[in-house]
């Protein structure tokens, strides 16, 4: 990567020298533009933040009310030291944005995390024409091919209905920001009551107060008399093997994640059922998204970056791999949070 480049990868993150702006920095900086609210992208400590206006309540909730933050709408251009920035939907979670960076006719796009499937929760991914596209590669191998979302959500609903029929509570693990809303929006809500772990319930509340989400759920309470036999209980993965889940007697457990594609991963998660559901692009999603940008140069970050970079090179792109501290869906699994 040359120092002449509009964006470079530094110890603190993706950096635009001319504008003196970082995108998703993992160390505190003066000026940060944030693609979305997941904790591997939105880190605390920076002096000022710019993100999509839908991400503002999320960042305030996660990084603190007192942060210096400004919301931008999609498509609106703002200029810093002569560099033009604008945000476009990434389709990953509520408020997730691609960052378009333009200087003297050259265009770079930092996509953050993205998916091309529509989830009926956030604004769908929009391909942006650019010279250089920075992409994730969390699921950048040909074994990762998602089924249509409605099909997976129907499978989840059927599974829940079957468990409810047998009077067994259904526990499904999902990350509190993103996956949880995706599931809640798209499953059949008539089967029984839906309860959420506190972490998910609070996130929902933040989003609902901001008018960004509208599915009402119940919070799991300490009241031991609650009948959960026909309920769906959503929890972050960390809730599953803690004493918190003891109150759900004879529960059936499931996990919704892109990693559930692989048998080895399903077995390692030690749940009864795995559903393949991800907020990241699958193999075909990555390939179509990149093609649609018309970019000649592609920089591949977190995921199967070496393999995917080689593949893109063979497809005629000028591709290179860069190390970041972004960890995609893996991050959430490993730390059992977000």
């Amino acid at each position: 990567m040359s120092s002449e480049d509009l964006l470079i990868f530094t110890k603190s993150g993706i950096y635009c020298k001319i504008a003196d702006v970082y995108i998703d920095p993992w160390r505190p900086v003066q000026r940060a533009i944030i693609t979305h609210g997941h904790s591997d992208h939105a880190r605390p400590g920076s002096k000022s933040y710019i993100c999509h206006s839908d991400s503002v309540p999320i960042l305030k909730y996660r990084l603190g009310k007192s942060i210096n933050i400004r919301g931008e709408s999609f498509g609106n251009t703002f200029s810093v030291n002569g560099v033009n920035f604008s945000l476009y939907p990434a389709g990953h979670i509520i408020g997730s944005a691609q960052i378009r960076v333009e200087y003297r006719g050259e265009v770079w796009v930092v996509s953050g995390d993205y998916k091309v499937q529509h989830d009926n929760v956030c604004q769908p991914f929009e391909p942006i024409t650019c010279n250089t596209f920075i992409t994730e590669s969390t699921f950048g191998l040909p074994v990762y091919q998602w089924k249509p979302l409605y099909e997976t959500c129907k499978n989840i609903s059927d599974w829940w209905a079957e468990n409810a029929k047998q009077k067994r509570p259904t526990i499904l693990t999902a990350y509190s920001l993103g996956k949880a809303q995706n599931i809640l929006q798209n499953i059949d809500k008539s089967i029984g009551p839906i309860y959420c772990h506190g972490a998910i319930q609070k996130t929902n509340q933040v989003l609902m107060e901001a008018g960004l989400f509208d599915v009402k759920t119940l919070e799991v309470s300490e009241n031991t008399a609650t009948d959960y036999t026909n309920a769906l209980i959503l929890t972050p993965p960390s809730g599953l093997n803690s004493s918190w889940s003891n109150k759900f007697k004879h529960a059936v457990t499931g996990s919704a994640s892109g990693w559930m594609m692989l048998r080895g991963m399903r077995r390692r998660r030690n749940v009864d059922k795995g559903f393949v559901l991800s907020d990241h692009a699958d193999w075909n999603g990555l390939n179509t998204a990149i093609k649609a940008t018309g970019a000649s140069r592609v920089i591949v970050t977190h995921g199967y970056q070496d393999t995917y970079t080689r593949y893109l090179s063979e497809q005629g792109y000028q591709a290179q791999s860069e190390k970041t501290l972004f960890e995609g869906e893996q991050f959430a699994i490993q730390n059992q949070e977000s």
Partner: peptide, 9 residues
């Protein structure tokens, strides 16, 4: 790419 993928799976 198939072989790389096989190593992961």
């Amino acid at each position: 790419l198939f072989e790389d993928t096989y190593h992961v799976v």
